[in-house]
């Protein structure tokens, strides 16, 4: 071994050590976050607050999974909401028609989503950015119009009504509000942790390289198409999870879950929170839901208010909130180190 190689091995080991440390830190943060969220019902009896957190879980999973595509891979999907709707509908239909235990239905829905996402992704990911955005949007509309037209199976424009049965399993009774709340929080935290692991893994860094320079990644022997397809399917799975949380929460599924506005909101959430940090979309989710709840209370024209806020972020800040904060911190640190 030459001296040069020896030195390299050393840095590699330290990088690995850093990664392990980071993983323990992420798990620790996740455990603390879950503990805080789970203990919330002990302090407050407010049903509205718990409802809010459940909705944040559903949208947060969806928006963060979209960030895997938009922020990490540079795939601007404008139809990601289809997997949210797909998750809600598959889960609801399986529970209503087959009456399987919830965990089985959960896994089955993920499997269905994976298959459909693989087919759609195989067609879409080779397209250039604008085409990709709109072809995903078209697939979203295809799924939406299928839901609308296949009324005998999906309930058409009325949605899946009559409630989704929520039989108890392993002592967890999701018909109980607090149980549902804890389960949503657990899914959110586990989902975020899993996505964080994906983002920080070598695969995650491959995605960043594809985003920055796909041609170079390809020259380095990376199968760009396969990597993009993989992340497309992975992101679809988490979006579908979000949809299932939503279906459990409202005990039904509605065509709006598969409508393009869900995708638009997802993009907007990412913009609002920022795409350069992992938790940006989560912050964006909380902001958007707060904004939506406040605005709808004051005016029926919430499109105008929302539009102006979007314009403020897109044209004024030109980045999301967490991007802004992160940049501010790094500026301050640089200033402190006298750079």
């Amino acid at each position: 071994m030459t001296e040069l190689e020896a030195g390299r091995a050393e840095t590699l080991a330290s990088v690995r050590g850093g990664a392990a440390f980071q993983r323990y830190r992420d798990v620790l943060i996740a455990v603390i976050a879950f503990a805080v969220l789970a203990s919330l019902p002990l302090f407050t009896g407010s049903k509205a607050l718990l409802d809010f957190v459940i909705r944040c879980s559903a949208y947060g999973l969806f928006a963060t999974s979209l960030n895997l595509l938009v922020g990490y891979t540079g795939l601007t999907s404008f139809g990601h909401g289809m997997f949210f709707g797909l998750g809600a509908y598959s889960f609801g239909l399986i529970m209503q028609k087959l009456g399987l235990p919830i965990p089985v239905a959960f896994v089955a829905t993920l499997a269905i989503t994976a298959v459909i996402a693989a087919v759609i992704g195989a067609i879409c990911v080779r397209l250039k950015e604008i085409y990709f955005a709109f072809v995903t949007l078209a697939f979203q509309m295809l799924i939406h119009s299928t839901i609308l037209s296949w009324a005998s199976f999906t309930g058409g424009d009325q949605g899946l009504r009559g409630g989704i049965p929520r039989p108890a399993f392993l002592g967890i009774n999701l018909a109980n509000h607090v149980h549902l709340y804890i389960a949503s929080c657990a899914l959110l935290v586990l989902g975020l942790l899993a996505m964080r692991q994906i983002a920080q893994s070598p695969f995650g860094y491959t995605l960043r390289m594809i985003r920055d320079n796909a041609a170079r990644a390809s020259f380095l022997g990376i199968d760009v198409w396969r990597a993009k397809l993989t992340v497309f399917v992975l992101a679809a799975l988490f979006a579908s999870m979000g949809g299932m949380v939503m279906a459990l929460f409202v005990s039904g599924a509605y065509p709006e879950f598969a409508y393009w506005t869900i995708s638009g909101e997802g993009i907007f959430i990412n913009m609002l929170g920022g795409v350069s940090t992992f938790l940006g979309p989560m912050v964006g989710t909380v902001l958007l839901l707060l904004l939506n709840d406040t605005v709808t209370r004051f005016t029926e024209y919430h499109g105008i208010v929302l539009g102006v806020v979007i314009l403020f972020f897109a044209l004024g800040l030109r980045k999301g909130l967490l991007d802004f904060v992160a940049e501010w911190f790094s500026h301050r640190r640089d200033a402190g180190e006298g750079r």
């Binding site: 795409v275 102006v308 314009l311 897109a314 044209l315």
Partner: peptide, 18 residues
């Protein structure tokens, strides 16, 4: 990036409809 352009237009879809 495309995202920004889509967003500005998305904002106007919402505003114009209202």
């Amino acid at each position: 990036d495309v995202l920004m352009q889509l967003l500005v237009c998305y904002a106007f879809v919402l505003i114009f409809d209202d």
